[in-house]
């Protein structure tokens, strides 16, 4: 809570993206992407399949090397640093501490042959925790926060439902108190009722921890509930940005208007 108040008062963005571009041969993955993400902000990236949103997310998260541009992150030690020119060890360290990545498919972000407790504890051990009792207590605390019962701590994720796996993945990612979370279709592939529960959980965690997040999704209902700001992508280009409700209720670009008007009303 204290951290949150401090970062909100901060005058510099947490993430600054400048002229990011990625090509696959002659085809554009994404191009000319620039934006600032401020502490505590949640930004949604929407667009249809192949619009470049996942390419962009992977470039931002250091999982894919862009062809041009800069991704500056406000590091704890050195202020704004271009993560693309960081050493690999520094970038991977960031990935275990201040950054987190929630995959669409939980099995991509979990170790399926390791217990729930071990999955959550891995990031703690990766940053040097060497007291079994402490690690286990913290893992159980986090399982509780994502609504997984304590008696499941020694079960493997293969014995979990899809929604539980996704919540476990979130616990595993947030246990080291990251400041920026990348999410790729975090509710994709889940039942609608499970989605709602997950959205509620994510919203609460984002608020309580003062997290900043970048969420890629094609689901406009998800961004309306989770994201403060929206970026609309088409064919690798950002065609519109703005406040989430403004973009959805008063879309300016032809593509956004099409996207919004194509949503089925329930």
């Amino acid at each position: 809570m204290k951290d949150m108040a401090m970062t909100e008062a901060g005058l510099s963005p947490l993430l600054r993206v400048e002229g990011l571009a990625k090509r696959y041969g002659a085809r554009i993955g994404c191009t000319e992407v620039s934006f600032d993400l401020w502490p505590g902000e949640v930004m949604g990236i929407v667009g249809e399949s192949g619009s470049g949103k996942t390419t962009l997310l992977n470039c931002l998260a250091g999982q894919l090397a862009p062809d041009a541009g800069r991704v500056l992150f406000d590091t704890r030690g050195r202020g704004m640093v271009d993560t693309l020119t960081m050493s690999e060890s520094e970038r991977r360290m960031l990935g275990r501490t201040d950054w987190a990545f929630v995959h669409q498919h939980a099995q991509d972000g979990l170790r399926m042959n390791v217990s729930a407790g071990g999955n959550v504890g891995e990031r703690l051990m990766a940053v040097g925790a060497q007291h079994y009792g402490d690690i286990r207590d913290k893992a159980i605390d986090w399982l509780d926060r994502v609504e997984i019962a304590e008696d499941r701590v020694d079960d493997r994720p293969s014995a979990f439902s899809g929604g539980m796996r996704q919540r476990l993945q979130i616990a595993r990612n947030l246990v080291t108190g990251p400041r920026l979370v990348f999410m790729d279709e975090p509710t994709g592939g889940l039942d609608v009722s499970v989605q709602a529960r997950l959205l509620d959980l994510l919203r609460g965690l984002v608020r309580e921890m003062g997290l900043s997040a970048i969420i890629v999704t094609h689901d406009l209902a998800v961004v309306r509930l989770l994201a403060d700001r929206l970026m609309v992508m088409k064919s690798g280009h950002v065609v519109e940005t703005g406040l989430t409700d403004q973009v959805l209720d008063d879309p300016q670009h032809a593509y956004t208007q099409l996207l919004v008007s194509s949503v089925l009303q329930v």
Binding site: R96, G118, R123, L124, Q130, Y132, R136, V153, D154
Partner: peptide, 12 residues
């Protein structure tokens, strides 16, 4: 860190 995960699993 992964090496300790293996030992953690043992104890768990």
């Amino acid at each position: 860190g992964l090496m300790h995960v293996k030992l953690y699993e043992d104890i768990a």
